[in-house]
């Protein structure tokens, strides 16, 4: 059928179909790229990784290889005030009974590759993915939309255990997050990284991480973090992935404010510990979040960005 000027309706249907197809392609691939934003204005080209697993490393020291430093008395007295970050037991991010177990010693891999992160106005957790790169939640790095927390205030303590600091304390060279978190603060893009001014990862090791289009429901979920209701000590808990969506994993690992940025890790083929998500939120109104904590899932685009930050000089 043609219109009076000779145009085929079929042709316009073809144009429409092609247009819809082209528009849908980036979404269907699930690989809409995320860009990098850095606090120093530097550029990190986003690498399109050819693999889906970034391997871990156990570190260059034995399990008892650390020589723990002690915090100076005056400093420790100040830090003891951090006992003030005590939340009530049975708070909303402890789901049911508090089943957390204290990690002691913290000089055992992979716990020594988990870090306490402090900064002006708060504290979080993080995990090493390279010699000088720590993954954490985006909200640990930014204060509202398009604004960094003070970069110079960051201190990163790998394997901290109360007043014992077994490894060198690192500061931040730059902070990085993805453009969607930077511009919108959408909770399913809540992740970022800290580039350290040290290479403590060569000593303590680092986590592997991976992405997969497969369902991760029923995979075991390990978590270890520096929760605010404990005195600068690391606590772990094991559960399993109970619910998932495209960009989030939901679980019932017990956490507290301060656990943000810690790893949700599991076994993936030969990779262990292998990060699957970045813990970021406790429970809140409505299913599935009313009964689950959740973190930002490592998708292909998240993987590419983490890998790019890891490999950045």
């Amino acid at each position: 059928m043609r219109d009076p000027r000779g145009y085929s309706i079929t042709r316009y249907r073809q144009i429409l179909a092609l247009s819809c197809l082209l528009a849908a392609l980036p979404m269907a691939s699930g690989a809409i790229a995320q860009g990098s934003v850095r606090s120093d204005g530097g550029v990190t080209p986003v690498e399109q990784a050819s693999t889906s697993v970034s391997p871990g490393f156990r570190g260059a020291v034995g399990e008892a290889g650390a020589s723990a430093a002690r915090v100076a008395p005056a400093e420790f007295a100040r830090e003891l005030a951090l006992q003030g970050v005590t939340g009530p037991k049975g708070a909303e991010v402890i789901i049911g009974t508090d089943n957390r177990i204290k990690v002691n010693p913290t000089t055992v891999y992979p716990y020594r590759a988990i870090a306490l992160i402090t900064f002006t106005g708060g504290r979080c957790s993080g995990w090493l993915i390279g010699s000088n790169t720590v993954v954490t939640a985006g909200h640990c790095l930014t204060l509202g939309i398009r604004a960094w927390r003070p970069v110079g205030s960051f201190r990163i303590y790998a394997g901290r255990n109360g007043n014992s600091i077994p490894y060198p304390v690192c500061t931040a060279r730059w902070l990085a997050t993805n453009t969607t978190w930077w511009n919108t603060q959408a909770d399913d893009y809540d992740y970022g990284a800290i580039k350290l001014n040290c290479t403590v990862g060569n000593t303590v090791g680092w986590f592997g991480f991976f992405w997969t289009p497969r369902s991760l429901v029923d995979f075991v979920s390990f978590n270890s973090s520096y929760p605010g209701d404990k005195n600068l000590t690391q606590w772990r808990h094991t559960d399993y992935i109970r619910v998932e969506d495209a960009r989030r994993l939901f679980y019932q690992n017990d956490t507290q404010p301060g656990s943000s940025g810690s790893p949700i890790y599991t076994y993936w083929r030969t990779c262990f510990p292998c990060g699957a998500a970045v813990h970021a939120y406790g429970t809140y109104n409505g299913p599935p979040s009313g009964t689950h904590n959740h973190g930002t899932r490592i998708t292909q685009s998240v993987f590419n960005l983490l890998n790019s930050w890891k490999n950045a000089p």
């Binding site: 980036p26 990098s36 934003v37 606090s39 930014t142 960094w148 453009t179």
Partner: peptide, 14 residues
């Protein structure tokens, strides 16, 4: 999609 693949300015410290 690709707009996100561009590195952005560093923004400011809050």
């Amino acid at each position: 999609g690709p707009v996100d693949s561009v590195n952005s300015a560093s923004g400011s410290v809050a």
